[in-house]
Nucleic acid binder design. Structure first.
Lengths: 176, 176
DNA sequence: CACTCTAAGTTCAATGAACGAACTGCGTTG
DNA sequence: CAACGCAGTTCGTTCATTGAACTTAGAGTG
């Protein structure tokens, strides 16, 4: 156990979820609130600054502030100077984020996936399980490169959306 | 695309999430609200009746009613008589539920996992990726048997919690 | 048929969270 | 010092959640 979920004061869902005899409930205490998983996703994509999350997610400032604090307290993010950097615990959420996004693709997207993830050594798209079809194994986050997919909305022209459309490694801080 | 997320009227998160150029946002429109993923989890465990969800989750009736309706509209559940049965789209969420629960186990649980999932033919616990260490492949939901784990709270004695403590296959309707 | 019991679902007032706009604090730059 | 941009707080409004009470529908019984 890396971090004490019980220490999270003022967690919205805490009181009710704690009763649930399942680790899923504990996980949802941390990443189950509105906006939280989208923040984690952006952090995995390399977003690190308050203003960048703000611009890209169009989230109210107060809520973003609260969520970032909660994620730092939970050990998912770490504050380094003015940057919010994802921790190992946070990186561990990649399979969840990826699986959920692929589920969204499969079931609720006309246009196909919004983003493609390539295994850098092999150049192949990873499959729904996060495995590379060429080398057969589940690919670690660091070996993935993100490319824009057909479902991506080209109309979004804020600097962060543009930066996230240019292919780059996951976790790599985005070029402003 | 199986189901039109756009048809979901009165979805709480819809208006804001739709803008997000990511399939994750679309997925969260469906399963991102409070309680929703716990309902899906229970449905995967074999819970089917309104009153059973109610007793096991200790969720307000009004919220449960709203969530079940939304999940039916989204094609995650299907209403068969008085039962809410998980669909193929819903079963597809198993990797997400499992990955998130394992993440909760690893990072926020003292006692170890609450539930163990065994690959029935092999009898081995599946790993964090959902693969069986014996046969090496990712195990389909239907071949999994759920057993209570060390982290499970033995104090919960409502009929559903008791039924979910006796080993049984996933998706198999629980014995009341 | 009336009577009752139960499970499913709605309504409602009170509470709490999210929202967006305005404001504060602060370190830089001109 | 003034002006600026970024980070974060405050605040009134709006919206969702909550728990309790209530309604509806169906099944079983005398």
């Amino acid at each position: 156990m890396n971090h004490a979920a019980g220490n999270l004061v003022r967690m919205a869902l805490g009181k009710d979820y704690v009763r649930q005899d399942c680790s899923l409930a504990r996980a949802l205490e941390v990443v189950g609130e509105r906006w939280t998983l989208l923040i984690v996703r952006d952090a995995l994509y390399g977003v690190r600054r308050f203003g960048h999350f703000l611009a890209h997610l169009e989230i109210p400032r107060a809520v973003l502030s609260a969520r970032l604090q909660a994620l730092v307290e939970a050990g998912v993010l770490e504050k380094r100077g003015g940057d919010y950097v994802i921790t190992d615990t946070g990186r561990d959420l990649w399979p969840v984020v990826h699986a959920l996004a692929r589920w969204g693709d499969r079931n609720y997207s006309d246009q196909g996936p919004c983003r493609l993830f390539l295994h850098i050594p092999c150049g192949k798209r990873i499959d729904a399980d996060g495995a590379c079809p060429a080398c057969g194994r589940v690919v670690p986050l660091e070996e993935l490169e993100m490319h824009p997919g057909p479902g991506l909305d080209p109309a979004r022209d804020d600097p962060i959306s543009v930066a996230l459309r240019t292919p780059h490694r996951l976790l790599e801080p985005i070029a402003v």
